[in-house]
Write a protein that binds this DNA or RNA. Structure first.
Lengths: 144, 144, 144
DNA sequence: AGCGTTCTAGAATATTCGATT
DNA sequence: GAATCGAATATTCTAGAACGC
């Protein structure tokens, strides 16, 4: 069983991208496996991205990374092979680690202000059902 | 005749569609037998659907699938974009599995509020919205 | 430059699509100019849509039309050329009329929960419904 | 009474653009 | 050419509503 269906497509896609050795010259795990590295941003954006997303813009890819809480890290990892001219960026998330695909389920997309409202709204739906039943004259125990 | 009369026609029809090898270029089981695949959506809609349903719209077919709790699933598990030019969609239901026609009886059409209940439902919606606001801590005054 | 920058891209795109006579076999104005007609849905979706949008699904196109308040109309326009088998759908919006591109600015995308206005919108709805109930003489209590 | 078909809307994610720091 | 975030639109999948049978 691979990543469960509860994992957004974006996450399973970067996972697959980093794992696929055919992409090794564009994107790969850092040596310690705690971050991934984009090696040639231009070619990565123009050649790899459109195969997996509906765009070929690095900026859009980065926006998605930020939605999911990834951070760009500037520091070179100690002892890591230096890609110097080719390393375009290193991105990291606490739950994105080589060998731990199961952690993907812990990565949450950030909610917008009004998405937050929706949660409340959903809570209220329970209330809706209660009210519905009460109006119908049906008695039952409290929700929650 | 296997399928009992308690199984809605829609379910027996997709079952027959998927099983019939003459439809192999339009619709078929996935390799693991846990989902079915529509191969060429346009031709499937225009050539196959009208032979079994009163329409030739993919959208109506999909609406039916959703009524019965089928879910569309990503083409392949790796998350790679890769559309087989021909694979238009893969649909899955926990009780729709190759070799287990008897499970069809467990697939239930979702219920909708009956006409009579709708009035109560509408009343309750007010309550829902009020509750929503209260939970949100929003204060509002009455109109006028 | 006709369409001002305040007009969403979707609207300027359908306008351009309908106006472009090279698309005449796929999409065109109705005879009276008050709606547009999609002539061959399958070919329109697969050949035209991807040139202008990031997809080739009629369903996504229709969802966009609905976001902007377009309605599908079934009735044949009186006196219009009948396309019979080829007419896949006729869509209409009060402010989408041949010869009146300036009206596009009046077409508004429906608001969603992701817009800040939504909260106010919801407030107003409650008020409306509460008033409605009160006028109806219906009493209701708060949920807990 | 539940099922089938159609049109529209809800909800979540995806993409773009620009503001903010 | 720094990086992140807010907001609006775009795309996808699913559900609501209405109506006919």
């Amino acid at each position: 069983m691979k990543a469960s269906s509860s994992v957004p497509k974006f996450l399973t896609k970067i996972w697959a991208l980093v794992e696929d050795h055919r992409n090794a010259e564009y994107i790969c795990w850092s040596q310690d496996g705690n971050s991934f590295i984009v090696l040639d941003e231009e070619r990565f954006a123009k050649e790899i991205l459109p195969r997996h997303f509906k765009h070929n813009n690095m900026a859009s890819f980065v926006r998605q990374l930020n939605w999911y809480g990834f951070h760009k890290v500037m520091q070179d990892e100690t002892g890591a092979a230096r890609h110097d001219k080719y390393c375009s960026g290193r991105y990291q998330h606490h739950f994105f680690k080589r060998g731990h695909e199961e952690l993907l389920t812990k990565i949450k997309r950030k909610v917008t202000a009004s998405t937050g409202d929706k949660r409340v709204f959903r809570k209220a739906k329970v209330c809706l059902l209660v009210c519905s039943l009460q109006i119908s004259g049906i008695v039952f125990g409290m929700c929650r």
